[in-house]
Amino acid sequence: MADNAIGLHVYAITQYRMRNSQSIPLSASGEGRLLKEFIPKFIRKFSTAEYEDGSRARFWHLNSVSSNSDTTDGVIRYGSSGFESTIVDSKSLKENYARKVTDVEVIPLYFRLWIPQSGQYGLVALQTFGQRSCVGRFCRGFENGYRSVNDGYRVAFAPVVPAKLASYRDGEVKKISFFKHDHTSDSSENAVLPAGNLVDYQVTIQAKPKGNLGFLGGLREKFAARSGDSDIQYGDTNFDKATAEILIGKKRRRVTLFGVSRETGKFDLTDQVERGANGMPKIDSMRAETTSIFEDIVAS
C-alpha cells in the first residue's frame, strides 16, 4: 500500500461469558448492557497517552471524541520514536528540522464504534495510513480493559470481510488489480528492464464501461479454489495481493481480496475521502464514508 493510502479495517464486536464461551446479545439491561456501558470507560482510560517503551517506542491516545446514543467516534493520535532523521523542504531541500531519538511523530487515525441497544454484535472501524496502523493496540486495549471491569466476561473482534456481505457479494466487479512485491523481472515478459531486476509488479484488468468482470462473491471463491488464501495465481505469476473495485448501488468501493492477514478485507478509501491541507483525511469525510459502510454491513 502506498505511503499515503487510506485504509479502513472493520470488525464485529461480540461479548461472551468466559465459563462457557456463550455469546451474549446486546440489550439495555442485564448482562447484555455490559459492552455499551464499557465504551465511556474505555474512552476515559485511553484519553491520556499510552507509551510503550522499547527499541522503537509507540505512543497513542484517543482525541476529538464525540458520542451519541449508539455511536462514538474520534481520532487516535498515534506515533513512534526511537530514531533520528532530518526533515527537509521538498522543493529547496533545505533542512527544516533535525528529529531527535526521543521525538514522537504523531499522526491522526480515525476510529468509530457503533454499539446498538439490541442485536448480536457491535461494529468498530479503524483507519490506517499507508503502513501505519494502531489496530492491534486499540483492540488489545479494548479487550483487556473490558475483562478488567467485567469479571467472567470477554469480547472478541471478528474482521468483516466485504466478499462475505450480501450487499457486497453480489456487487459487480469493475476492476481487478494484482500486486507482487520484489518480483524478479524476466526479459521475455518485460522488455523495459534487464532480466533479474527486482521490481514491484502490478497487473490490472478493467471491464468496459457497461460491462463487469463478474461478481465479488463468485470471484473470491474462484481464486480461493485455485490458489488458497496465501497467494493468488494469475498467468504464470503468484501474486501477494489482489484488490477489486466493485459497484455498490451507484458508488464504487475498492476492497482487498487477498493479501497478508492484516490487509485481507480492508476497505481502501484512498480515492473516496477528502484530504485536508495536511494531507490527512478530513474527519467529516471519514465519518461519512464509514457511516455508509456500516449501513451496508447492517443491511446484510
Rank of each mutant, 00 (worst) to 15 (best):
P25V: 03
Q206H: 10
S285R: 08
I176E: 13
W60K: 02
F142N: 13
V75S: 08
M18T: 15
A28D: 12
A158L: 07
K208M: 14
R287E: 07
E274C: 00
N197Y: 14
A57G: 13
V124F: 04
P116E: 09
R137C: 01
F83T: 11
T291Y: 07
Q15F: 08
L269N: 06
Y11G: 02
L93F: 13
T184C: 02
V10E: 03
F83H: 12
K45N: 05
E263S: 10
I246S: 06
F111D: 12
V199A: 07
A288I: 08
R33T: 06
A163Y: 14
P209Q: 06
G249V: 11
S167T: 08
P25Q: 09
L126W: 10
S64V: 02
G7R: 01
A2Y: 13
L269F: 13
R137A: 14
S67M: 10
I43T: 15
F46G: 06
G74F: 13
Y146I: 07
S261L: 05
G141I: 05
G276M: 01
Y78N: 09
P281K: 03
R262Q: 01
L198P: 11
V88G: 08
G79F: 09
V106T: 15
S90R: 04
I87D: 11
A166H: 10
K91M: 00
D240K: 04
K266G: 10
I24F: 00
Q117C: 08
S227K: 01
F129H: 14
T237L: 00
V255C: 06
G119C: 04
F157Q: 09
M286Q: 12
T256G: 00
E84D: 01
F267R: 00
T291F: 06
I248Y: 07
D103T: 09
R132E: 14
R154A: 09
Y51T: 06
F83A: 12
Q127Y: 03
I24L: 01
S23A: 14
R44H: 11
P281L: 04
V161G: 00
K175P: 02
A28W: 04
C134L: 05
Q22F: 03
E52H: 03
F178G: 01
D240Q: 07
K175Q: 14
P108K: 01
D200G: 03
I293K: 12
R132T: 11
K282P: 05
D284T: 14
Q233S: 07
S188N: 08
S27H: 03
P281T: 04
K250I: 01
R17P: 01
A5S: 15
E95Y: 00
D231A: 01
D240F: 03
G171E: 04
T256C: 04
Q120R: 14
N190V: 09
T204N: 10
G7W: 06
E289K: 06
K250N: 06
Y51P: 00
L62H: 13
F138T: 05
A158T: 14
I205M: 12
V149G: 04
T204K: 14
L109A: 05
V88P: 09
